[in-house]
Design a protein around this nucleic acid. Sequence first.
DNA 1: AATGAATGAGTGTTCATTCAT
DNA 2: AATGAATGAACACTCATTCAT
Lengths: 213, 213, 213, 213
Amino acid sequence: MVTTKKKKGSVRDAGATKRRILDAALKEFAKLGLGGARVDTIAESAAANKGLIYAYFGSKENLFVAVLEEAYLGIRTAEQKLDLNHLPAAVALDTLVRFTWEYYLAHPEFLTLVNSENLHTGRHVKKSKAIRDSFPPMIEMVQSILDRGVASGDFRPGIDPVQLNITIAAIGYYYLTNRFTGSVIYSRDFMDPKRLEERLEFNLETIRRLVRV
Amino acid sequence: MVTTKKKKGSVRDAGATKRRILDAALKEFAKLGLGGARVDTIAESAAANKGLIYAYFGSKENLFVAVLEEAYLGIRTAEQKLDLNHLPAAVALDTLVRFTWEYYLAHPEFLTLVNSENLHTGRHVKKSKAIRDSFPPMIEMVQSILDRGVASGDFRPGIDPVQLNITIAAIGYYYLTNRFTGSVIYSRDFMDPKRLEERLEFNLETIRRLVRV
Amino acid sequence: MVTTKKKKGSVRDAGATKRRILDAALKEFAKLGLGGARVDTIAESAAANKGLIYAYFGSKENLFVAVLEEAYLGIRTAEQKLDLNHLPAAVALDTLVRFTWEYYLAHPEFLTLVNSENLHTGRHVKKSKAIRDSFPPMIEMVQSILDRGVASGDFRPGIDPVQLNITIAAIGYYYLTNRFTGSVIYSRDFMDPKRLEERLEFNLETIRRLVRV
Amino acid sequence: MVTTKKKKGSVRDAGATKRRILDAALKEFAKLGLGGARVDTIAESAAANKGLIYAYFGSKENLFVAVLEEAYLGIRTAEQKLDLNHLPAAVALDTLVRFTWEYYLAHPEFLTLVNSENLHTGRHVKKSKAIRDSFPPMIEMVQSILDRGVASGDFRPGIDPVQLNITIAAIGYYYLTNRFTGSVIYSRDFMDPKRLEERLEFNLETIRRLVRV
DNA sequence: AATGAATGAGTGTTCATTCAT
DNA sequence: AATGAATGAACACTCATTCAT
């Protein structure tokens, strides 16, 4: 039996090629934004042909949407795995704050992608039903944590889960995306491990105080 | 008799032309970032010749630095005018939180500029001594508010003014820069006046709770 | 049935396109020098897209180096074909003088290219190992002619082959590159066939007298 | 009596300003050729305003003509001062060869200017009656040297003074304008004092042998 | 499925020249 | 006589996209 001949690493495997393109695109878009990213660079670092990008995704912009979608689904999926509903409210909230921080730290591309998308007025996110659909469950989960905390007497009532969620994101996100200007302006290395630990603690305290009675 | 007006607004006044260029550049950079901004567009909307941009600023990048510098000094100057040292600590802190929020709301360009600068790893901010020098006094001011609050028994001790400041910025900044994705994702109009008011209140509460004993 | 011809001469043949670019570039650089040459003009007269020039050569300057290299190797190759080592010394030297003259006449681009390169202080020639390596064999050949001439009693000893070579080049080169100012200044048409013939004879005599005992 | 007020070194002295412009232009044109020269650079290094260049010379090209004219007249004037008619033919000819070499060495700008003018097909030289008129006397002088040499039995008859003159120029000019490519190609420093001396001797020998009986 | 040659509309930047003062 | 602000036409180079093979 004859096996199909290969060239380079490209195995005439549409799925694998698509995967490599998405990975390369994520890196490129994360590093340079939608406008700054170069299709040539993506093709090269995906060890794929430029034409394939157009065959599979149609345009640079569509590729960006695909990448953005994967990024949003990535964080949502990881979040769901936390299984916060089985934890006491206070622990669940701490876990969420910690998870958010650590996810951002491990996936700085996510932050740049979201920034880039907002620079472009959210034009692409609007198109993606997958992204829009991924959020309500998350809000519900936060709501449920809040409800349980109120029931247990640990949390004060009346907290808007959306506002809370935005704040949890904000205090991690801002520190990390603005780490470059921050490091210069405040004369501290924002990425020093000690500093990162310190920031996480500060954020945990911020959220604990925000919800407690 | 009326003095003869020249075509466009250009009256062979270098200062005025520079001003128009800076204003136009701020808008363009804010809307599209450093990479996405077009020198042609800036020239056109400044009613200035493209060559003049190069005569006065040397390069698109230098122009960005000039704009960035103005933007940073703008917020710093406005902040100083608050004269927070003459207010009771709790009032001063509320004022700072409110000011930060309102400044961001009134100057959304500032946020995009900072985002763009961070996309470019803070390369330009490093070059500007004016920007670096503008921050220490601000930190001192926050420190002084904290000190007074601790002295009056209103605030708990041991709060890092830098972390506090970052958090004050974060909870406003994040909501506003990510208003486009936010509006889609959370299915609410982030810019609705009611929502804005609500967010400001939430932020005030967040910071009050963070510092109190 | 006739095979369908593509528009222009571009048949998606990288080699052919490169060739056309080099040919067009040679003409343009020869006519206007490195600084005066226009990439657009080269692209147009090569019936190639401007982008391809950059894809293949990287920059205008690199293209110039490629052209310069071809030009130098062209004259060196033609010289080698003369096979002077099998001729009596005096004949060989006459042949070299005549060849040099005729090559310059047939390839005036070579002269302009070298002038342009010297205006740019030889910056590009330094980079090209191919050019540097092409000269030593030529000097050896001239040396060998001189040796044979001395051995046969026709030439005087002690002549530096490099100085001789420079002089052979000089008396042809100068007349031809400066033919425009020369024609005006000396009120004669430097390119008149009679005049050219006359100059060649004068040069032959100059070199014969220079080497004879 | 009131003396006119001055600003900088600019004395509101049309003559002096013109002089400074011409000097600066000579340097710039010599270094970069007509095409490569920058009007701004000339203005700056002449400590003159760009507008003045246009007021005095009309255009960059006219300025080039003025510079070219001065350069040609400069060498012609220096040549006349040699007063070769009072010297024995052989000495006069040696003196001319030596003078030509030394003038080129001391005024490398002259060579670049002439090269640039030939790149532009002698367009400007044609316009200058002053340049055209300066040559016939020189040819007559060479003719007279040749005549005296023939009469004294030192030189052979029938030598064309124009061809001789071209050769005298060529053997110096070529070596010097092509000193950059030459140094690379022949692996010797063409500007080393020893080498220069050696070349002059070689040239003197070349011309002596060319004219002798 | 995959390649790489080819395209055209930009993009930042430069520069000779003009003109109001 | 002198200045410097202003202009517009280039210019080298880039890049998303298309297409023949």
